[in-house]
């Protein structure tokens, strides 16, 4: 039997994921494609938010969508009907997308002729925040029925995101949702956070969000 050895590793457990995320980011940058990671709870309105954005962006931008779910392809069918390229990814039970799964999705979908790709992450406010995928922009959706206390309960998601979309704003009076309190709590964690109150049902607020994203995409692509 071989003698027992101690090997010092001193490596972050997610170092391989971070390296894969950097590689995704560089590959997308090299071909001038912007990758956006969209996160939020199940039922927050990720797919209906994408439909509203696609309607406002597809005339000027070539859009791809990666739908990540534990199972089924209902979201991919909905997005495909909107007339953009879509791929359904299954995580086989895992609660988040990691960078390597994202790479495989990007390769399977084909991205060279796309201007922007949305990754619709698994519905979850916890795990997707932990795993970098190599996105240029991280957007999270907080929907009104979830409550204005969510930044207190799931601080990492609000800390790592660049954009907070407050969806279902048309229902705020019914749910006693305090938008100012939600913004204050989220911005205390992350002063850079850009906030957009919207309703994916009525379309309210989406012109502003689409304009913001178009400007971001244009600026990012001009740098490449």
């Amino acid at each position: 039997m071989d003698p027992i050895r101690i090997v010092e590793v001193k490596e972050a457990v997610l170092a391989d994921n971070d390296a894969a995320a950097r590689s995704n980011k560089e590959r997308m940058k090299a071909q001038n494609t912007v990758l956006i990671n969209l996160m939020g709870s199940p039922g927050a309105g990720k797919t209906s938010t994408l439909l509203q954005l696609i309607a406002r962006m597809k005339d000027t931008l070539r859009i791809g969508v990666m739908e990540a779910d534990v199972d089924s392809d209902v979201d991919a069918q909905t997005i495909g009907d909107a007339g953009v390229r879509v791929i359904q990814l299954h995580t086989a039970g895992l609660c988040h997308m990691d960078a390597d799964m994202t790479r495989r999705g990007l390769e399977a979908m084909g991205t060279k002729d796309l201007d922007v790709i949305f990754l619709e992450n698994i519905g979850n406010l916890v795990c997707p925040a932990e795993f970098e995928v190599g996105a240029d922009l991280r957007m999270m959706i907080l929907s009104v029925p979830e409550g204005d206390d969510k930044p207190l309960k799931y601080p990492l998601m609000f800390t790592v995101s660049d954009v907070m979309i407050v969806n279902k704003i048309d229902t705020a009076p019914i749910f006693d949702f305090d938008l100012a309190a939600a913004c204050e709590r989220a911005c205390a964690l992350n002063p850079r956070l850009a906030v957009f109150p919207v309703s994916a049902r009525t379309g309210e607020g989406f012109d502003e969000l689409a304009d913001y994203l178009k400007a971001f995409i244009q600026e990012r692509r001009a740098q490449a």
Binding site: P3, I4, R5, I6, E8, V9, K10, V13
Partner: peptide, 11 residues
């Protein structure tokens, strides 16, 4: 906020 593999003992 770290998660680091410090060392391993192995054959």
């Amino acid at each position: 906020n770290e998660c680091i593999i410090k060392e391993i003992e192995a054959e």
